[in-house]
Design a binder for these strands. Structure first.
Lengths: 347, 347
DNA sequence: TTGATTTATTGGAACGTTCCATTTATAGAG
DNA sequence: CTCTATAAATGGAACGTTCCAATAAATCAA
């Protein structure tokens, strides 16, 4: 049934009674061919069941139309949203994004990046896996392929990054808790090998400083960035002699875990302990209690990253500005009773 | 800094003082070359900053090492898990899976499939978008590229599908509700244009039949397969003159919505109304109340799909058996008080 | 030594496109 | 009717690999 050998441009040419060059022109939508010829050729293309061989084409052409998206954890809905935002932009530009998952594993990431390079991608959007070594992108940069970091960045890299204003988000959230009257605060989850962590923790500490919360009343509990991690954090915190009464969590997953752990102890987030998350994933709004969280406009960041990428490809550069996305605090139930809740609006 | 023109196999050959053929052999790890020569060549590869051009290679070689995964909704953690399962298998086989999202849009799906074909994928694993036309895969089959459906299938297609035993899962769940003493049952969410829906609904109705639940006491409410859809379903159901007391939901998202809607009305899932979900996503276990759900071993199905794909590629066929994955009911709190809950174990 | 055998290496012809430089056909001007 | 300008179509040389057939070098049997 299937013609064994796959049809090429020459088969089309034969079928349509024209030259391969003409077929190529038609394929590229050149205005140079006579409309009737084009029709004839297109018919032949249909008839022989032709599929364009982009590999062969790229051998001659400068750039391919695929860009790679390398993501550290596809299971996190947060990254899926990021991907969705990018796809919108790329689709409009006729670029196809191929996504690959590194499962937070630098070795796997290396393989995936290699594969994408071999495939001849025009650019790479990466949310680097934890523990990525500084040199991981050296070869790629050297090859002149543009790279953009999304959501995460590497400590000393010159690669442009698109990320939310983590510091300000954490600051906003912490202020909110302090204004609610809390004076013993915790920062739950995450680990210090991530730049994002440094930034969010920095915002937390900055706000504490600004409101003169004594160091002894700031509690920092590192932990997995998952529900499980959040549960563990809460346990650790409540075991202290003077436990905190409110927590800013590294991300929403951690916050959900904290809420769960509270309920297990017969406590209610919002009433007995204030919880604020980070990222404002879709679920936050529907959780019970609804989660107060820092919204980062994930899809928007994805779009931004895609735009930057397209610009870089177009201007064949490997450099671009960082981009810090605006954040906002979405106040819901988990951070306490709904008494005319005011969002901090510092400069 | 970057040598402008990218290095080729010939540059390596020149650098190492051998022929391009030798370099090619080294690249393929052939045992024919003298070890010392291989070392010399590898050094040269490193020195010139070579990146392998798979496109060029595929021009000569039979097939590529990339297989495409086309998924209808990457935002659903369920599919992300599926992807993760596949990746495990493919990685071991030296195959790189590229993922693309169709956002449940058949037009987008068409584009994505075309792109993947052009890229020369060795095979395609697809969870087809709702509304995919029967002919969508004709060209792909004709080209001899193996396709496997995962989780979803098309009504009359001959393409092998890997999916859970939806009918049995729904049956098990319904039995469980009936054994709990419910006699007015609902099936919430989903829409009849999906084969999965037909199967799950079929299981529900089959169990009703088996236990002689009168038709008047079976309520079917179609709806979006999301939290929102679930909330709407519950509202519709409770507005009836003789509302049901238990519901099997099309999937977990719908079930979460139902639980939320119950709480809004001051009712508690498990106590006032029994809720069972489908898929048993990670969140089900942690929800409050914990969700009774039909576990489908998503990652396992992903692995299975990947294995089938590899087999098909290896034996260069485009046909394979369907594969129905085992399911099991995980009884938790949302389906009612914990009185020695027994899982139906029909033949 | 000579020829046969094995081991390493190599040139050259594909593979399916694009694109440049031509050729051929068509039309317009004189 | 010839000449030139324009429009449409074409052949051939890349592009970076693989792989076959062939060569060159080393080893061995006689």
């Amino acid at each position: 049934m299937a013609s064994r050998a796959k049809a090429t441009i020459l088969d089309i040419a034969r079928e349509a009674g024209v030259s391969k060059s003409t077929v190529s022109l038609v394929l590229q939508g050149s205005g140079l061919i006579r409309p009737e010829t084009a029709v004839k050729v297109r018919k032949a293309i249909e008839d022989v069941g032709y599929v364009y061989n982009r590999g062969a084409a790229n051998l001659r052409k400068a750039h391919s139309n695929v860009i790679g998206m390398v993501i550290n954890d596809l299971t996190n809905p947060f990254f899926a949203e990021l991907a969705v935002g990018m796809e919108r932009v790329f689709q409009a530009a006729g670029v196809v994004p191929f996504i690959a998952n590194t499962a937070e594993n630098p070795v796997r990431q290396e393989e995936v990046l290699k594969s994408m390079m071999e495939q001849g991608v025009a650019g790479l959007i990466v949310s680097p896996a934890r523990g990525t070594t500084p040199g991981a992108f050296r070869r790629i940069e050297a090859a002149g392929v543009p790279v953009v970091f999304a959501m995460r960045r590497l400590p000393e890299s010159r690669i442009p990054a698109i990320a939310p204003d983590n510091r300000r988000g954490a600051c906003l959230a912490t202020e909110h808790l302090i204004r609610k009257g809390h004076s013993r605060l915790a920062f739950f989850g995450g680990s210090s090998d991530l730049v994002v962590y440094q930034e969010r923790l920095g915002g937390f500490l900055g706000a504490c400083e600004a409101f003169a919360i004594p160091v002894a009343d700031r509690m920092i509990v590192e932990g997995e960035t998952s529900r499980k991690g959040g549960m563990a954090c809460l346990e650790t915190a409540l075991a202290m002699p003077e436990p905190p009464t409110a927590a800013l969590c590294f991300n929403d997953a951690v916050a959900f875990g904290v809420i769960l752990a509270l309920r297990k102890r017969g406590l209610e987030a919002g009433a007995d302990f204030a919880v604020v998350g980070f990222d404002d994933v879709a679920e936050a709004e529907h959780y019970s209690p609804a989660l107060t969280s820092v919204a980062v406009d994930t899809a928007g960041l994805g779009e931004r990253a895609a735009h930057v990428m397209l610009k870089m490809i177009q201007s064949r550069t490997t450099r671009a500005e960082d981009h810090i996305g605006a954040v906002s605090l979405v106040v819901r139930e988990s951070s306490g009773p709904d008494r005319n809740s005011q969002v901090g609006d510092a400069a």
